[in-house]
């Protein structure tokens, strides 16, 4: 897929759809505590933006994440989750016990909310980058088969 799919229609549709998708993804991520949503859904939505950019604008798309970077970032997301779990252990809590996180917030519930947000970001990164990974490697495979 070295040549992009783009035409006039696709390019303009892309410019309208992708910003909304990404803003909606970030909304779903940050409001996961209050409304339906969360890391998995947000990751899928954010990945759609990158995948569309790759499909419409080709390999030189400005809004693109390469396969190797995506693998690293997916690992980073899983690490962020595990790190949020391990961090309370250094401050006297158990694994994933958010109330022992070293954050200066007044209420325990707020610290819990912060911990939940941290792990949601980790999940989002992993899901998004895994989707981009698989897309990238499939595209490369298609190129080499041609």
């Amino acid at each position: 897929m070295r040549k992009p799919f783009g035409g006039v229609v696709l390019d303009s549709a892309f410019r309208v759809i992708v910003p909304f998708t990404i803003i909606y993804g970030i909304y779903v991520l940050t409001h996961g505590e209050f409304s339906p949503g969360g890391g998995f859904q947000a990751g899928a939505l954010l990945a759609v933006g990158v995948v569309l950019a790759r499909l419409v604008q080709g390999e030189n798309a400005k809004f693109n994440i390469k396969g190797t970077h995506a693998v690293m970032l997916a690992g980073l997301g899983a690490f962020l989750y595990a790190f949020t779990g391990i961090l309370p252990m250094f401050f006297g809590g158990n694994f994933l016990e958010y109330s022992y996180l070293p954050v200066h917030l007044h209420e325990t519930a707020e610290i819990h909310a912060f911990g939940i947000l941290m792990i949601e970001i980790g999940v989002t990164l992993t899901v998004m980058m895994t989707i981009i990974d698989i897309m990238d490697v499939l595209v490369k495979k298609g190129d080499s088969d041609e």
């Binding site: 997916a74 690992g75 899983a78 792990i119 992993t126 980058m129 895994t130 698989i134 490697v137």
Partner: peptide
């Protein structure tokens, strides 16, 4: 959920 995320990461890595 931690396990779920790890499984997803490993599945993606394996696919790649």
């Amino acid at each position: 959920t931690l396990e779920e995320t790890t499984v997803m990461f490993l599945a993606g890595l394996t696919t790649v």
